[in-house]
Design a binder for these strands. Structure first.
Lengths: 196, 196
DNA sequence: TCAGATTCCGAACATGATGTCCATCAACCG
DNA sequence: CGGTTGATGGACATCATGTTCGGAATCTGA
């Protein structure tokens, strides 16, 4: 199972330093604007050393930030599911946790996904959320109409709406309290938009 | 009103050729992979000429594809709003149009927004759609509850959900007919997801 | 503690894309 | 037809990427 026998302290140090430098720089100037050389300077590490460990900036992010975020989210989800309450209140239970988590790390989130376009940048977050919604749909499918509506469409609908609202909320400075955004979102999702 | 007196045939030709070349290349290798020089080669136009008209690849896209898309969508919405029928049926009128348009140009859409990448292009489409939804909300705001729910949140909710479903649909090959996806989406949006 | 193995360093090199400038030439418009 | 405007392509400067390599630093295991 274990792929690594021993981990040389130097490589551990190097990798960790690079990851840390990346986060620092993301907060300072945003992900897109960062160059490999920037990271190396910030980390005081040779550029050739960088390429000995990672193939690119994206690679570094993948093997660091994404994994880290994924771990955090899974943990939150575990908590949310373990909490007591009605099914109605637990459904979409990850939403509140996510709003809170995002607010705690608002700078990082905004640098990563905020501003323009970044919706899809949060690829791994999106995937996790899809998994959560899928699981929830599967759990509740007993008393459901025959599926003229593909489940996956519902999943995409909910996750897309959620991420969109989340990013908007963060970009606006997260003024509304998480509980309130959570409540509004879930009402929109379960009862529809009050327009038509 | 008119900003342009006359349009030199040469500039019209150049611009048009460049736009066309961009689309060709997007279909051939995807937007991200395209370089300014690629475009110039494809169009048989000097690179210096390119920079005399556009400042970058993104600029070219903006002044071509985006404007075109925006015009088409506005037109579709105008039609939908002018059509007879219940308000409920007329709202979100751009949706069906967009599904149909996307299916007609499915190769282009998938190269633009599908799979991975697509961040940049989605950004502008997203903005266009936000404008449409905002306009619709503003038009219907008379018989609305006092806004405990920020309008912009609703906008983000709807547009995020829509784009997410659209991309999923396209990536799956657009198997369901546009009318059906449209109907499902609008039902989800107006009545909520049938889970909780 | 020490020796051999591994990693780090930095500088050099090759490559490829961006963006600017300019003199020359061709096309357009009135 | 003649003056104006746009097109051309090549030279330049710049910047980021990715690779290579020999010597120096550092780790690991005995």
């Amino acid at each position: 199972m274990g792929t690594e026998k021993t981990i040389d302290r130097r490589v551990a140090r190097t990798r960790s330093t690079l990851h840390h430098a990346l986060i620092t720089l993301i907060l300072r100037k945003g992900y897109e604007a960062i160059t490999v050389e920037d990271i190396c300077n910030e980390a005081n590490i040779g550029r050739s050393t960088f390429y000995a460990h990672f193939t690119s900036k994206d690679d570094l992010k993948r093997s660091g930030l994404d994994d880290h975020l994924r771990a955090m989210l899974v943990e939150r989800q575990r908590h949310a599911l373990a909490a007591p309450g009605e099914l109605k209140d637990r459904s979409l239970g990850f939403v509140l946790g996510m709003f809170e988590h995002a607010r705690e790390h608002i700078d990082l989130y905004r640098a990563l996904a905020g501003g323009r376009g970044g919706t899809i940048v949060l690829g791994s977050i999106r995937e996790i959320l899809c998994d959560l919604v899928r699981a929830e749909l599967a759990a509740n499918k007993d008393r459901k109409l025959p599926d003229v509506v593909p489940n996956e469409l519902i999943v995409q609908f909910v996750v897309g709406a959620f991420l969109s609202v989340l990013i908007w909320w963060l970009d606006g400075g997260a003024k509304l309290p998480p509980q309130q955004v959570d409540q509004i979102f879930r009402r929109l999702a379960t009862e529809g938009v009050p327009s038509a």
